[in-house]
């Protein structure tokens, strides 16, 4: 599954650690929520970037105390029509101020890119290689948005008031 970051297909730097597997030092590692919560204090003191793979049916608030120590949070889309992780992403970005990488995993397809970017994701494990290749085009699909979100884009409502009478552009 190709990984897209900054609009480019990139290699995943993170080692995906099994729940019973060893976590080597000085290697970026991604662990499950269960493993993380069982031993969070020790894991955040470990030498090396740490990432957590967080399920979409668990309150993201549980992760809040540790967010300053996490380099990446990976959220899940088991089916692309299961949109719980959009709320988790916005909460992470807008409520808890998470500044690390936010990765979308699972059933991630071209037609969600716009929504994912707006919800605050900046790393995408894309299911189909063809979709990954057109990421930039799909991401630029909309030049107008109607609501504020985690991407900080200025919605039409505010642009109208700021630049009354001018064309969008």
């Amino acid at each position: 599954m190709p990984l897209v970051e900054n609009g480019q297909i990139v290699q995943d730097r993170y080692l995906h650690v099994e729940d019973d597997g060893p976590i080597p030092d000085r290697v970026p590692a991604i662990v499950s929520a269960q493993r993380f919560l069982a031993n969070a204090d020790a894991l955040v003191r470990r030498d090396g970037s740490l990432a957590v793979w967080w399920p979409n049916d668990r309150r993201i608030a549980e992760l809040a105390p540790w967010l300053g120590h996490l380099a990446l949070v990976a959220l899940q889309f088991p089916k692309f029509r299961d949109g719980r992780a959009y709320s988790q992403a916005r909460l992470l970005r807008e409520t808890y101020g998470f500044g690390g990488t936010l990765r979308a995993t699972g059933d991630v397809l071209r037609d969600q890119f716009h929504f994912l970017i707006r919800a605050g994701f900046d790393s995408f494990e894309v299911k189909k290689p063809a979709d990954a290749r057109v990421f930039a085009e799909a991401a630029a699909r909309y030049s107008v948005v109607y609501q504020p979100s985690a991407d900080g884009r200025v919605p039409a409502l505010r642009r109208r008031v700021q630049r009354a009478g001018t064309d969008p552009g």
Binding site: G83, A119, Y142, A150, D151
Partner: peptide, 16 residues
């Protein structure tokens, strides 16, 4: 209309 615009192509609520 304000609500219509707000929820149109909403990034968080398109897959409820």
């Amino acid at each position: 209309e304000l609500i219509r615009q707000h929820v149109t192509l909403h990034p968080e609520f398109s897959f409820m």
